[in-house]
Design a protein around this nucleic acid. Structure first.
Lengths: 190, 190
DNA sequence: TCGTAATTTCAGTAATTACTGAAATAACAG
DNA sequence: CTGTTATTTCAGTAATTACTGAAATTACGA
């Protein structure tokens, strides 16, 4: 491996974390390298930087493309492929979220839906189905929220994050006001 | 494998997804089985249900315990260990989020912090450090939001989710009002 | 302390995943 | 076409991860 020390630490870390993130070492290292490189890199440069085989680079770049995590660039009068990551980290986050949802959540959601359609044939199955129903509606709530939030432009998203749980304090206040207003006509618990 | 068909589909799916979720097949299957079982199960019952070795069950339960995803129960006059999952799916979600953060995010955050302390020795390193800084602050914003939100009780969290992006519409309105109020004294762009 | 059941550990093996080098394919320029 | 460079494919191998069975350990009750 042939990199400035500071970059090397980063690249090695991404390599190690790769397995925890569901990608492999090489894919992690290549992504890290592209992320910190000032300019797009071609395959040969990646080979030189990381000291891995050309074919491994080819396969790993293909993997990163399948994840939509890299951009393919071309220089004039040069037919080699050059790769970068998007400049905007928020955009990277969006892509990551989208792809992980597609791979890690959607299949489960559809399996759950299918099972929930079936007729339970015993108490055990009835109970199991009820549990799967709970899981299903939890995931649905999460993905609905996600679908809603992913459309936000970056600065609105940042606002939402900064606000965090404070929002619910507003809601508490609102609840009080609403229930006060309602209390004459239809009083309720609480 | 010896399970009602409906449960078996669920268990097999969790097994297959296991690798995508960073756990292995057996761990996924055991978790799924415990999740849908009406009562806690002991190791022998898991062996019978899934048709895997006793030692594999032992190791996989240990793994699930490391993730805080299962509860250990004891029946009176029975010294075997029985395992379940929490009843509350929201609690499960919280645990999952906490553990994934611990394993998948925190190490990167601390590596980034360390690297950002260092003195860059070239333009390349300066650029890399700037990029890592962007990543670092993105992750910090996300984890701050998470720390804020994780404290909410379940129904407040559900409210927050249901509201989703609608919150920002409130904010837009608020922005307008505030800027209107300010416009006489210190007019600004927008 | 002995015996028994429950659980864990771990060396060996099976299964899976990652990586390489060589060959094939593609994309051009002359 | 032919030669050259870039990229991909893929069979074989290396490395890693998962799983098993046997032995060891633990936790009791008699």
């Amino acid at each position: 491996m042939n990199l400035p020390p500071l970059v090397q630490s980063f690249v090695l870390h991404f390599g190690e974390m790769g397995s925890r993130w569901g990608i492999n070492r090489t894919v992690g290292q290549i992504y890290a390298l592209l992320y910190v490189s000032p300019d797009p890199l071609n395959a040969e440069q990646i080979v030189d930087a990381l000291g891995i085989s050309r074919s491994n680079v080819s396969m790993s770049l293909r993997e990163l493309q399948a994840w939509n995590l890299v951009l393919l660039k071309h220089l004039p009068d040069d037919r080699r492929d050059f790769f970068t990551t998007p400049d905007d980290v928020w955009q990277i986050l969006r892509t990551l979220a989208e792809e992980r949802k597609k791979r890690e959540v959607d299949p489960t959601l559809s399996v759950l839906r299918e099972i929930l359609m079936q007729q339970p044939a015993s108490d055990a199955e009835r109970h199991a189905q009820a549990r799967m129903g709970e899981m299903h509606s939890l995931i649905e709530q999460l993905t609905n929220w996600y679908d809603d939030v992913k459309k936000l432009e970056t600065d609105r998203l940042a606002t939402l994050l900064t606000l965090g749980a404070k929002v619910t304090r507003l809601l508490e206040a609102k609840d009080k006001i609403v229930s006060l207003g309602r209390s004459k006509r239809s009083p309720e618990k609480g």
